[in-house]
Amino acid sequence: MEYRSQIMSLGYSNYYQSTYLIPDLCPRCNRSNNPITKLIGSKEYSNGRVCFLVHHCSSCNLDHYSLQLISPDRSGEETKLWALHPSNNLKDFSENLLKFSPRFVDLYHQAETAENAGNFDLAGMGYRAAEEVLIKDFALAFSGESKEKIANLKLNDAISHYFKDDEASLISTDVVRINGNDFTHWNRPEGFDLKAQLEQIKQYLDIYIARVNYQLMIENPPVTRNKSHDSKSNK
């Protein structure tokens, strides 16, 4: 995560124009971060003042919070960000996947952002939606079937149709689909554990993501064999 400095007056001697850090992207909505920041409390130590700050995002109208060690003016010491809530550590995807299915990556990150904000039902729906986009992008690229046919398949039918000979993809995508349905539909099992089910969804979705990445790596190798050379000239 990238951060940038902002200046605020803390109202204390030697700290009037001190700098604090904010993430470039809001950890709630993942949009450009230009928050209104307020000092909630602080305590001075020998090496600086520990400040608890609240940052109100103008895009999503939600707050995120930070704990920072801010040094006195003219001390030459840099501000240290000790903690940020919620954290915004979004999943990294390969360049191949980013180019192949940008909508899948965007939906996945939206689901992560919802999960980080504690909106677990929305997150479960989002991961399921992201899976459907990736499955259908994969089908469009490699099945030879038309976009219209692929678009008209329900997720369950798409999984059965495209992965009937690929057991790992069949099992992993079915787990995400079935668990995702429990976040989407009105009726769900008694004692449903949202956090545990979200973790399971992400684990099995990772299996399918790895399957897609494997295919993309095979289709886009960084080097190719020079077929014009015979076997004696190859080394």
Rank of each mutant, 00 (worst) to 15 (best):
K136F: 06
D157V: 10
L122A: 15
Y108V: 07
F120T: 15
K136G: 02
V105E: 00
A130Q: 05
A83T: 11
E132H: 02
S143F: 06
I150M: 01
H161S: 12
S143N: 09
F104Y: 07
L155I: 11
D106P: 11
A141R: 06
R128Q: 00
G124T: 06
L97G: 05
A111L: 09
S87D: 05
L97C: 04
A141Q: 08
E131A: 05
H161P: 00
N96A: 04
G126Y: 00
E115I: 04
L107A: 12
H85F: 12
K147L: 14
M125Y: 10
V105M: 01
P102L: 14
N96R: 07
F138R: 00
L140I: 14
G126L: 02
A130D: 03
W82E: 15
A139Y: 09
G144T: 14
V133L: 10
A111R: 03
V133T: 12
K91W: 08
F100A: 00
E148A: 09
Y162M: 14
E131Q: 12
T113Q: 15
L140A: 10
F100G: 00
L140G: 04
D106W: 02
F104R: 00
E132M: 06
E145F: 00
S94R: 02
F120L: 14
A139T: 04
L122S: 09
I135E: 12
A111E: 11
A123K: 03
S143G: 05
K147H: 13
P86R: 03
L155R: 09
L98P: 03
A151K: 05
S94D: 03
N156F: 15
F142L: 08
N88H: 13
R103P: 00
G118Y: 10
G126E: 06
H109E: 06
K91E: 02
A117R: 14
A158I: 09
V133A: 10
W82S: 13
F163K: 03
F163P: 04
A129G: 09
A151H: 07
H161Q: 12
F163E: 10
N119R: 13
L140S: 15
K80A: 14
G126Q: 05
L81P: 05
E115M: 15
E148M: 08
E145S: 03
Y127P: 01
R128W: 08
A158K: 03
S94Y: 02
